[in-house]
């Protein structure tokens, strides 16, 4: 049983125009087995929250805390966070020229677990996971994300999620750019990780369609750097019908 606890998190970035506060007091708690969805308008700070959880150096936490089972996550380097059991499926996965997927996956798995996976079982595990996510076998010999289509990149993020077996995963718009079949296949991958590893998930999305496959326990509406409202799956339906107007109005009135 693991818990990721975010308390009153304030985050700023340095821009050419000076320091800009993007997260303005976010509080969220995600435990093993739970599925949380975050929905919110463009630019509201969802990716900022995701990157901050993973430890991107560009984001400065000015106050608040993030802990994983009581351990101070903000004190950890990004690699230590991965080793502690956090995973971020990125909105824009990065290309690493000259490094094959096979090499990358094995190196990362070794780094996360602190020991090399058994070669025999590992090879099979990778192959099976790729098959289930309908990733062609020759991707194993391609360079990490190089020349992958948008949808292929997302699938490969979920491939990593399945192989690395994190305690808590943050999925940043993993559904964007997926075709209808891919959306289902990817969702199944996430659900498998839930069932098999009792993973906790923070799912950032713009569309309710994925929520038909990955059924959230909680939905958070994210507006202007903080959670404006929390609710169950029904909140997603309301957003689908009415958009963010109600929440945006509240922000500009404040």
């Amino acid at each position: 049983m693991s818990t990721l606890e975010i308390k009153d998190l304030h985050v700023s970035i340095e821009t050419d125009q000076g320091t800009k506060e993007i997260l303005k007091g976010v509080s969220l708690t995600i435990s093993s087995g739970e599925k949380h969805a975050i929905m919110g308008p463009n630019g509201s700070g969802k990716s900022t929250l995701a990157s901050t959880i993973a430890g991107h150096p560009r984001y400065e936490v000015t106050s608040g805390s993030i802990t994983l089972d009581g351990e101070d996550v903000l004190e950890m380097e990004p690699d230590e966070r991965a080793q502690a059991g956090l995973f971020l499926a990125m909105q824009y996965p990065v290309e690493v020229p000259g490094v094959t997927m096979t090499n990358f996956l094995r190196t990362a798995k070794t780094a996360i677990d602190g020991e090399a996976p058994k070669l025999r079982t590992w090879t099979k595990e990778v192959k099976d996971a790729m098959e289930k996510l309908r990733i062609d076998a020759d991707f194993a010999n391609r360079n990490v994300n190089e020349g992958f289509s948008g949808g292929e990149k997302k699938r490969v993020e979920i491939l990593q999620l399945e192989l690395f077996k994190p305690k808590i995963a943050v999925l940043d718009e993993t559904d964007s750019g997926l075709d209808i079949d891919a959306l289902r296949v990817v969702s199944e991958g996430v659900n498998r990780a839930h069932e098999e590893n009792n993973m906790g998930t923070l799912l950032i999305t713009h569309y309710t369609r994925i929520l038909n496959y990955i059924k959230p326990d909680y939905v958070h509406v994210f507006v202007d750097g903080k959670v404006a409202e929390q609710g169950g799956p029904e909140l997603a339906d309301e957003l689908e019908a009415n958009g963010y107007d109600r929440f945006l109005a509240a922000v500009s009135a404040a």
Binding site: P78, M90, A108, F164
Partner: peptide, 14 residues
């Protein structure tokens, strides 16, 4: 920075 962050978030030390 993005490449480094991506790989570090996959457990690799800097």
């Amino acid at each position: 920075e993005e490449q480094l962050f991506y790989l570090m978030s996959r457990g690799l030390a800097e």
